[in-house]
Amino acid sequence: MHVSTPEIDIRIPTILRPYTGGEKSVQAAGATLSAVIDDLERRFPGMAERLLEDGKLRRFVNVYLNDEDVRFIGSLDAVISAGDNITILPAVAGGS
């Protein structure tokens, strides 16, 4: 049986917008981050390959669930709930 999960907002960085037709913010659904990325791939083919490598998040890709880095809350297994938001950003050097 297919259990429907809520669509959530995902902010896309400039560098990945060629895959979303230029959209800054898109929607996708899934119970976990992994499932959300699968759904993103269905809607925007090519996206998953830019986010994942060997079944893990790419080294220079940071994904934030409600502003928290997912690597500290389960990574691809992070649980997604209604009303959550996801931000994808490339890793860049901070203030120094």
Partner: peptide
């Protein structure tokens, strides 16, 4: 960045 592998 020009590409995602240009991250730091």
């Amino acid at each position: 960045l020009r590409n995602i592998d240009g991250g730091f």
